[in-house]
Design a protein around this nucleic acid. Structure first.
Lengths: 187, 187
DNA sequence: GTTTTCTTTTGACAATTGTCAAAAAAGGAA
DNA sequence: TTCCTTTTTTGACAATTGTCAAAAGAAAAC
Protein backbone atom coordinates (compact mmCIF):
# COMPACT_ATOMS: atom_id res chain seq x y z
CA UNK A 1 0.00 0.00 0.00
CA UNK A 2 3.00 2.27 0.57
CA UNK A 3 3.84 2.03 -3.10
CA UNK A 4 0.41 3.39 -3.96
CA UNK A 5 0.70 6.22 -1.49
CA UNK A 6 4.06 7.16 -2.85
CA UNK A 7 2.80 6.94 -6.43
CA UNK A 8 -0.24 9.09 -5.65
CA UNK A 9 1.82 11.76 -3.96
CA UNK A 10 3.78 12.25 -7.15
CA UNK A 11 0.60 13.25 -8.92
CA UNK A 12 -1.18 15.19 -6.20
CA UNK A 13 -0.76 15.03 -2.43
CA UNK A 14 -4.19 14.22 -1.04
CA UNK A 15 -5.27 14.96 2.53
CA UNK A 16 -4.87 12.41 5.28
CA UNK A 17 -8.63 11.79 5.63
CA UNK A 18 -8.88 11.18 1.91
CA UNK A 19 -6.01 8.73 2.00
CA UNK A 20 -7.49 6.92 4.98
CA UNK A 21 -10.85 6.61 3.29
CA UNK A 22 -9.24 5.41 0.10
CA UNK A 23 -6.98 2.86 1.72
CA UNK A 24 -9.89 1.42 3.68
CA UNK A 25 -11.85 1.03 0.46
CA UNK A 26 -9.13 -0.86 -1.38
CA UNK A 27 -9.14 -4.61 -1.78
CA UNK A 28 -5.99 -6.60 -2.25
CA UNK A 29 -6.08 -8.84 -5.30
CA UNK A 30 -3.57 -11.54 -6.15
CA UNK A 31 -3.71 -13.14 -9.56
CA UNK A 32 -1.58 -15.93 -11.01
CA UNK A 33 0.23 -15.84 -14.32
CA UNK A 34 -1.94 -16.58 -17.36
CA UNK A 35 -5.21 -15.81 -15.58
CA UNK A 36 -7.51 -12.99 -16.60
CA UNK A 37 -8.33 -9.88 -14.63
CA UNK A 38 -10.96 -8.79 -17.15
CA UNK A 39 -12.60 -10.71 -19.97
CA UNK A 40 -14.14 -9.27 -23.12
CA UNK A 41 -17.89 -8.96 -23.12
CA UNK A 42 -18.04 -8.14 -19.42
CA UNK A 43 -18.22 -4.82 -17.62
CA UNK A 44 -14.99 -3.94 -15.91
CA UNK A 45 -16.17 -2.47 -12.66
CA UNK A 46 -12.83 -1.93 -10.99
CA UNK A 47 -9.87 0.34 -11.11
CA UNK A 48 -6.60 -1.26 -10.03
CA UNK A 49 -3.20 -0.20 -8.92
CA UNK A 50 -0.54 -2.71 -9.85
CA UNK A 51 1.85 -3.16 -6.97
CA UNK A 52 3.84 -6.06 -8.35
CA UNK A 53 3.76 -7.98 -11.59
CA UNK A 54 2.86 -7.39 -15.17
CA UNK A 55 -0.29 -7.43 -17.29
CA UNK A 56 -1.39 -6.74 -20.81
CA UNK A 57 -4.58 -5.50 -22.44
CA UNK A 58 -5.56 -7.01 -25.74
CA UNK A 59 -8.55 -7.69 -27.91
CA UNK A 60 -9.39 -10.09 -30.67
CA UNK A 61 -9.50 -8.81 -34.20
CA UNK A 62 -9.99 -11.15 -37.16
CA UNK A 63 -8.84 -14.09 -35.08
CA UNK A 64 -5.70 -12.33 -33.93
CA UNK A 65 -4.79 -11.08 -30.50
CA UNK A 66 -4.06 -7.41 -30.66
CA UNK A 67 -2.09 -6.08 -27.71
CA UNK A 68 -2.49 -2.40 -27.03
CA UNK A 69 -0.98 -1.85 -23.65
CA UNK A 70 1.25 -3.37 -21.03
CA UNK A 71 1.00 -2.62 -17.34
CA UNK A 72 3.94 -2.78 -14.99
CA UNK A 73 4.62 -1.99 -11.35
CA UNK A 74 2.95 1.21 -10.14
CA UNK A 75 0.66 1.61 -13.09
CA UNK A 76 -3.05 2.13 -12.80
CA UNK A 77 -4.94 -0.60 -14.58
CA UNK A 78 -8.47 -0.91 -15.84
CA UNK A 79 -10.41 -1.60 -18.97
CA UNK A 80 -10.84 2.11 -19.41
CA UNK A 81 -13.67 2.26 -21.89
CA UNK A 82 -15.74 -0.21 -19.91
CA UNK A 83 -14.94 1.30 -16.53
CA UNK A 84 -15.95 4.76 -17.67
CA UNK A 85 -18.95 3.92 -19.82
CA UNK A 86 -20.22 1.10 -17.56
CA UNK A 87 -20.70 -1.05 -20.64
CA UNK A 88 -19.17 -4.38 -21.67
CA UNK A 89 -15.82 -3.90 -23.35
CA UNK A 90 -13.95 -5.84 -26.00
CA UNK A 91 -10.79 -5.85 -23.97
CA UNK A 92 -9.12 -8.74 -22.18
CA UNK A 93 -6.67 -8.09 -19.39
CA UNK A 94 -4.31 -10.98 -19.02
CA UNK A 95 -1.81 -11.57 -16.25
CA UNK A 96 1.68 -12.06 -17.66
CA UNK A 97 3.44 -12.58 -14.33
CA UNK A 98 2.00 -13.41 -10.91
CA UNK A 99 0.68 -10.06 -9.78
CA UNK A 100 -0.51 -8.15 -6.76
CA UNK A 101 -3.00 -5.34 -7.20
CA UNK A 102 -5.19 -3.05 -5.16
CA UNK A 103 -8.71 -2.64 -6.50
CA UNK A 104 -11.62 -0.31 -5.96
CA UNK A 105 -15.05 -0.48 -7.57
CA UNK A 106 -16.51 2.36 -9.60
CA UNK A 107 -19.38 2.78 -7.11
CA UNK A 108 -17.12 3.10 -4.09
CA UNK A 109 -14.76 5.39 -5.94
CA UNK A 110 -17.62 7.71 -6.88
CA UNK A 111 -18.83 7.74 -3.30
CA UNK A 112 -15.36 8.75 -2.23
CA UNK A 113 -15.37 11.50 -4.85
CA UNK A 114 -18.47 12.96 -3.20
CA UNK A 115 -16.83 12.92 0.19
CA UNK A 116 -13.32 13.96 -0.76
CA UNK A 117 -12.92 16.63 -3.38
CA UNK A 118 -9.18 16.16 -3.41
CA UNK A 119 -9.52 12.52 -4.35
CA UNK A 120 -11.45 13.50 -7.43
CA UNK A 121 -8.78 16.06 -8.20
CA UNK A 122 -6.14 13.37 -7.91
CA UNK A 123 -7.97 11.20 -10.39
CA UNK A 124 -8.47 14.12 -12.75
CA UNK A 125 -4.75 14.78 -12.68
CA UNK A 126 -3.81 11.14 -13.15
CA UNK A 127 -6.22 10.93 -16.08
CA UNK A 128 -4.57 13.93 -17.65
CA UNK A 129 -1.13 12.41 -17.35
CA UNK A 130 -2.32 9.18 -18.89
CA UNK A 131 -3.92 11.19 -21.68
CA UNK A 132 -0.60 12.79 -22.48
CA UNK A 133 1.08 9.41 -22.66
CA UNK A 134 -1.58 8.15 -25.00
CA UNK A 135 -1.15 11.21 -27.16
CA UNK A 136 2.56 10.52 -27.48
CA UNK A 137 1.87 6.97 -28.46
CA UNK A 138 -0.61 8.05 -31.09
CA UNK A 139 1.89 10.47 -32.59
CA UNK A 140 4.51 7.75 -32.81
CA UNK A 141 2.03 5.42 -34.42
CA UNK A 142 0.91 8.02 -36.89
CA UNK A 143 4.20 9.40 -38.07
CA UNK A 144 7.06 7.10 -37.29
CA UNK A 145 8.29 3.99 -39.03
CA UNK A 146 8.25 0.60 -37.36
CA UNK A 147 11.96 0.86 -36.71
CA UNK A 148 11.64 4.28 -35.11
CA UNK A 149 8.82 3.08 -32.88
CA UNK A 150 10.90 0.11 -31.80
CA UNK A 151 13.91 2.27 -31.02
CA UNK A 152 11.71 4.67 -29.08
CA UNK A 153 10.37 1.76 -27.06
CA UNK A 154 13.91 0.55 -26.41
CA UNK A 155 14.77 3.90 -24.94
CA UNK A 156 11.64 4.56 -22.92
CA UNK A 157 10.95 1.05 -21.66
CA UNK A 158 13.89 -1.29 -22.09
CA UNK A 159 12.44 -3.52 -19.38
CA UNK A 160 9.55 -4.46 -21.66
CA UNK A 161 11.90 -6.44 -23.86
CA UNK A 162 13.09 -8.57 -21.00
CA UNK A 163 9.64 -9.41 -19.77
CA UNK A 164 7.35 -9.68 -22.77
CA UNK A 165 7.34 -12.12 -25.69
CA UNK A 166 8.32 -10.60 -29.01
CA UNK A 167 4.98 -11.31 -30.68
CA UNK A 168 3.15 -9.25 -28.11
CA UNK A 169 5.60 -6.38 -28.41
CA UNK A 170 5.23 -6.44 -32.19
CA UNK A 171 1.47 -6.28 -31.85
CA UNK A 172 1.82 -3.38 -29.41
CA UNK A 173 3.99 -1.56 -31.94
CA UNK A 174 1.48 -2.28 -34.68
CA UNK A 175 3.78 -4.46 -36.78
CA UNK A 176 4.13 -8.16 -37.48
CA UNK A 177 6.36 -10.33 -35.38
CA UNK A 178 8.51 -11.16 -38.39
CA UNK A 179 9.15 -7.51 -39.13
CA UNK A 180 10.13 -6.82 -35.55
CA UNK A 181 12.47 -9.77 -35.55
CA UNK A 182 14.15 -8.44 -38.68
CA UNK A 183 14.42 -4.95 -37.27
CA UNK A 184 16.10 -6.31 -34.17
CA UNK A 185 18.66 -8.27 -36.14
CA UNK A 186 19.63 -5.16 -38.09
CA UNK A 187 20.20 -2.79 -35.19
CA UNK B 1 -22.69 30.61 -24.55
CA UNK B 2 -25.86 28.55 -24.71
CA UNK B 3 -24.09 26.05 -26.89
CA UNK B 4 -21.48 25.56 -24.19
CA UNK B 5 -24.09 25.14 -21.48
CA UNK B 6 -25.90 22.59 -23.54
CA UNK B 7 -22.69 20.77 -24.35
CA UNK B 8 -21.64 20.69 -20.70
CA UNK B 9 -24.97 19.35 -19.54
CA UNK B 10 -24.51 16.33 -21.76
CA UNK B 11 -21.41 15.43 -19.82
CA UNK B 12 -22.42 16.40 -16.30
CA UNK B 13 -25.06 18.89 -15.13
CA UNK B 14 -23.24 21.36 -12.94
CA UNK B 15 -24.94 23.53 -10.32
CA UNK B 16 -26.21 26.98 -11.14
CA UNK B 17 -23.56 28.77 -9.03
CA UNK B 18 -20.85 26.80 -10.77
CA UNK B 19 -22.24 27.70 -14.18
CA UNK B 20 -22.52 31.35 -13.24
CA UNK B 21 -18.97 31.45 -12.00
CA UNK B 22 -17.74 29.68 -15.11
CA UNK B 23 -19.63 31.86 -17.56
CA UNK B 24 -18.35 34.99 -15.86
CA UNK B 25 -14.81 33.74 -16.20
CA UNK B 26 -15.03 33.03 -19.91
CA UNK B 27 -13.65 35.35 -22.55
CA UNK B 28 -15.05 35.47 -26.03
CA UNK B 29 -12.38 35.03 -28.70
CA UNK B 30 -12.85 35.61 -32.41
CA UNK B 31 -10.13 34.48 -34.76
CA UNK B 32 -9.92 34.84 -38.53
CA UNK B 33 -9.13 32.08 -40.96
CA UNK B 34 -5.44 31.22 -41.32
CA UNK B 35 -4.45 32.82 -38.03
CA UNK B 36 -2.99 30.90 -35.12
CA UNK B 37 -4.57 30.29 -31.76
CA UNK B 38 -1.41 28.67 -30.41
CA UNK B 39 2.11 28.60 -31.79
CA UNK B 40 4.77 26.01 -31.14
CA UNK B 41 7.38 26.90 -28.58
CA UNK B 42 4.91 28.80 -26.43
CA UNK B 43 2.92 27.76 -23.39
CA UNK B 44 -0.75 27.32 -24.16
CA UNK B 45 -2.39 28.79 -21.13
CA UNK B 46 -5.99 28.53 -22.19
CA UNK B 47 -8.71 26.00 -22.60
CA UNK B 48 -11.25 26.85 -25.29
CA UNK B 49 -14.71 25.84 -26.27
CA UNK B 50 -15.29 26.14 -30.00
CA UNK B 51 -18.69 27.66 -30.63
CA UNK B 52 -18.39 28.16 -34.34
CA UNK B 53 -15.72 27.38 -36.90
CA UNK B 54 -12.99 24.88 -37.39
CA UNK B 55 -9.37 24.43 -36.30
CA UNK B 56 -6.54 21.99 -36.57
CA UNK B 57 -3.61 21.00 -34.40
CA UNK B 58 -0.37 20.15 -36.12
CA UNK B 59 3.34 20.07 -35.56
CA UNK B 60 6.39 20.16 -37.74
CA UNK B 61 8.36 16.98 -38.26
CA UNK B 62 11.26 16.82 -40.71
CA UNK B 63 9.96 19.88 -42.53
CA UNK B 64 6.47 18.50 -42.88
CA UNK B 65 3.28 19.61 -41.22
CA UNK B 66 1.79 16.74 -39.34
CA UNK B 67 -1.88 17.19 -38.49
CA UNK B 68 -3.09 15.21 -35.54
CA UNK B 69 -6.49 16.60 -34.76
CA UNK B 70 -9.30 18.72 -36.11
CA UNK B 71 -11.68 20.71 -33.96
CA UNK B 72 -15.23 21.49 -34.96
CA UNK B 73 -18.25 23.13 -33.39
CA UNK B 74 -18.76 22.23 -29.72
CA UNK B 75 -15.37 20.68 -29.22
CA UNK B 76 -13.05 21.62 -26.42
CA UNK B 77 -9.76 22.89 -27.75
CA UNK B 78 -6.36 23.32 -26.24
CA UNK B 79 -2.78 22.30 -26.75
CA UNK B 80 -3.30 19.58 -24.20
CA UNK B 81 0.25 18.69 -23.32
CA UNK B 82 1.22 22.33 -22.85
CA UNK B 83 -1.94 23.27 -20.99
CA UNK B 84 -1.52 20.41 -18.53
CA UNK B 85 2.23 20.48 -18.07
CA UNK B 86 2.55 24.28 -18.20
CA UNK B 87 5.49 23.88 -20.57
CA UNK B 88 6.02 25.06 -24.15
CA UNK B 89 4.53 22.63 -26.64
CA UNK B 90 5.46 21.68 -30.16
CA UNK B 91 1.92 22.08 -31.35
CA UNK B 92 0.45 24.77 -33.59
CA UNK B 93 -3.27 25.41 -33.56
CA UNK B 94 -4.35 26.97 -36.81
CA UNK B 95 -7.71 28.45 -37.65
CA UNK B 96 -9.18 26.81 -40.76
CA UNK B 97 -12.41 28.86 -40.83
CA UNK B 98 -13.29 32.11 -39.09
CA UNK B 99 -14.04 30.91 -35.58
CA UNK B 100 -15.67 31.95 -32.34
CA UNK B 101 -14.42 30.46 -29.10
CA UNK B 102 -14.82 30.87 -25.37
CA UNK B 103 -11.58 30.75 -23.44
CA UNK B 104 -10.50 30.36 -19.85
CA UNK B 105 -7.00 30.44 -18.43
CA UNK B 106 -5.50 27.57 -16.47
CA UNK B 107 -5.15 29.76 -13.39
CA UNK B 108 -8.76 30.87 -13.36
CA UNK B 109 -9.97 27.36 -14.08
CA UNK B 110 -8.00 26.00 -11.14
CA UNK B 111 -9.41 28.69 -8.90
CA UNK B 112 -12.88 27.66 -9.98
CA UNK B 113 -12.02 24.05 -9.23
CA UNK B 114 -11.26 25.05 -5.64
CA UNK B 115 -14.58 26.82 -5.31
CA UNK B 116 -16.80 24.43 -7.23
CA UNK B 117 -16.21 20.74 -6.79
CA UNK B 118 -18.76 19.93 -9.48
CA UNK B 119 -16.83 21.93 -12.05
CA UNK B 120 -13.79 19.81 -11.44
CA UNK B 121 -15.97 16.73 -11.75
CA UNK B 122 -17.25 18.00 -15.07
CA UNK B 123 -13.73 18.40 -16.35
CA UNK B 124 -12.74 14.99 -15.06
CA UNK B 125 -15.65 13.47 -16.96
CA UNK B 126 -14.93 15.39 -20.14
CA UNK B 127 -11.30 14.32 -19.95
CA UNK B 128 -12.37 10.72 -19.65
CA UNK B 129 -14.58 10.94 -22.70
CA UNK B 130 -11.79 12.52 -24.71
CA UNK B 131 -9.49 9.78 -23.51
CA UNK B 132 -11.83 7.15 -24.88
CA UNK B 133 -11.91 8.88 -28.25
CA UNK B 134 -8.15 8.99 -28.35
CA UNK B 135 -8.00 5.32 -27.48
CA UNK B 136 -10.25 4.48 -30.41
CA UNK B 137 -8.09 6.48 -32.70
CA UNK B 138 -4.96 4.75 -31.51
CA UNK B 139 -6.52 1.35 -32.10
CA UNK B 140 -7.46 2.32 -35.63
CA UNK B 141 -3.96 3.60 -36.26
CA UNK B 142 -2.35 0.52 -34.85
CA UNK B 143 -4.38 -2.21 -36.49
CA UNK B 144 -6.24 -0.94 -39.51
CA UNK B 145 -5.08 -0.30 -43.04
CA UNK B 146 -5.10 3.16 -44.58
CA UNK B 147 -8.27 2.28 -46.51
CA UNK B 148 -10.06 1.09 -43.37
CA UNK B 149 -9.10 4.20 -41.47
CA UNK B 150 -10.38 6.34 -44.30
CA UNK B 151 -13.68 4.47 -44.46
CA UNK B 152 -14.06 4.75 -40.72
CA UNK B 153 -13.51 8.48 -40.96
CA UNK B 154 -16.08 8.70 -43.74
CA UNK B 155 -18.65 7.09 -41.46
CA UNK B 156 -17.87 8.87 -38.23
CA UNK B 157 -17.15 12.36 -39.57
CA UNK B 158 -18.28 12.83 -43.16
CA UNK B 159 -18.30 16.60 -42.59
CA UNK B 160 -14.51 16.59 -42.31
CA UNK B 161 -14.22 15.80 -45.99
CA UNK B 162 -16.24 18.81 -47.01
CA UNK B 163 -14.32 21.22 -44.87
CA UNK B 164 -10.71 20.11 -44.82
CA UNK B 165 -8.13 19.89 -47.61
CA UNK B 166 -7.17 16.36 -48.58
CA UNK B 167 -3.53 16.76 -47.64
CA UNK B 168 -4.44 17.57 -44.06
CA UNK B 169 -6.84 14.65 -43.84
CA UNK B 170 -4.17 12.32 -45.19
CA UNK B 171 -1.75 13.57 -42.57
CA UNK B 172 -4.40 13.05 -39.89
CA UNK B 173 -4.88 9.47 -41.08
CA UNK B 174 -1.13 8.91 -41.09
CA UNK B 175 -0.80 8.37 -44.84
CA UNK B 176 0.51 10.36 -47.78
CA UNK B 177 -1.81 12.58 -49.76
CA UNK B 178 -1.18 10.53 -52.91
CA UNK B 179 -2.24 7.34 -51.20
CA UNK B 180 -5.42 8.91 -49.90
CA UNK B 181 -6.21 10.28 -53.33
CA UNK B 182 -5.82 6.79 -54.78
CA UNK B 183 -7.95 5.22 -52.09
CA UNK B 184 -10.70 7.71 -52.80
CA UNK B 185 -10.68 7.00 -56.50
CA UNK B 186 -11.08 3.29 -55.86
CA UNK B 187 -14.03 3.41 -53.45
C1' DG C 1 18.16 -35.85 -20.08
C1' DT C 2 14.54 -36.13 -23.31
C1' DT C 3 10.34 -34.66 -25.12
C1' DT C 4 7.04 -31.30 -25.91
C1' DT C 5 5.60 -26.76 -26.43
C1' DC C 6 6.28 -22.09 -27.19
C1' DT C 7 9.03 -18.41 -29.15
C1' DT C 8 12.03 -16.41 -32.49
C1' DT C 9 14.31 -16.28 -36.83
C1' DT C 10 14.76 -16.78 -41.78
C1' DG C 11 13.40 -17.11 -46.76
C1' DA C 12 10.53 -16.08 -50.65
C1' DC C 13 7.20 -13.46 -52.38
C1' DA C 14 3.13 -10.24 -52.46
C1' DA C 15 0.71 -6.23 -51.03
C1' DT C 16 0.72 -1.74 -49.28
C1' DT C 17 2.34 2.63 -49.00
C1' DG C 18 5.78 6.34 -49.88
C1' DT C 19 8.43 9.52 -52.88
C1' DC C 20 9.26 12.41 -56.65
C1' DA C 21 7.66 14.76 -60.58
C1' DA C 22 4.29 16.46 -63.49
C1' DA C 23 -0.34 17.30 -65.07
C1' DA C 24 -5.06 18.41 -64.19
C1' DA C 25 -8.61 20.55 -61.60
C1' DA C 26 -10.53 23.79 -58.49
C1' DG C 27 -10.83 28.04 -56.08
C1' DG C 28 -9.73 33.09 -55.36
C1' DA C 29 -8.19 37.57 -56.66
C1' DA C 30 -7.84 41.20 -59.83
C1' DT D 1 -13.34 36.61 -67.54
C1' DT D 2 -8.47 35.80 -66.92
C1' DC D 3 -4.62 34.99 -64.17
C1' DC D 4 -2.58 33.08 -60.21
C1' DT D 5 -2.41 30.08 -56.42
C1' DT D 6 -3.69 26.06 -54.13
C1' DT D 7 -5.36 21.49 -54.19
C1' DT D 8 -5.94 17.04 -56.18
C1' DT D 9 -4.83 13.42 -59.28
C1' DT D 10 -1.85 10.42 -61.93
C1' DG D 11 2.37 7.78 -63.34
C1' DA D 12 6.62 5.39 -62.43
C1' DC D 13 9.31 3.43 -59.31
C1' DA D 14 11.31 2.36 -54.62
C1' DA D 15 10.96 1.19 -49.87
C1' DT D 16 8.51 -0.79 -46.21
C1' DT D 17 5.91 -4.11 -44.25
C1' DG D 18 2.89 -8.27 -44.33
C1' DT D 19 1.94 -13.22 -45.17
C1' DC D 20 2.87 -17.93 -45.39
C1' DA D 21 5.80 -21.69 -44.46
C1' DA D 22 9.55 -23.81 -42.42
C1' DA D 23 13.56 -24.06 -39.50
C1' DA D 24 16.06 -22.97 -35.39
C1' DG D 25 16.25 -21.94 -30.64
C1' DA D 26 14.63 -21.60 -25.88
C1' DA D 27 11.82 -22.83 -22.12
C1' DA D 28 8.86 -25.86 -19.67
C1' DA D 29 7.10 -30.49 -18.66
C1' DC D 30 7.90 -35.11 -18.00
Amino acid sequence: MNALHHCISQYYPISLPAWEALSKALTRVEVPKSSFLVKEGTVCNKLYFLEQGCLRGYYNLDGKEVTYWFGFEHNFITSFYSFISRKPGIENIQVLEDSTLWGISAEVLHQLFDQHHDLERLVRIINEQYYIRLEERLMAMQFKTARERYEQLLESSPHILQRIPLGQIASYLGISQETLSRIRSQV
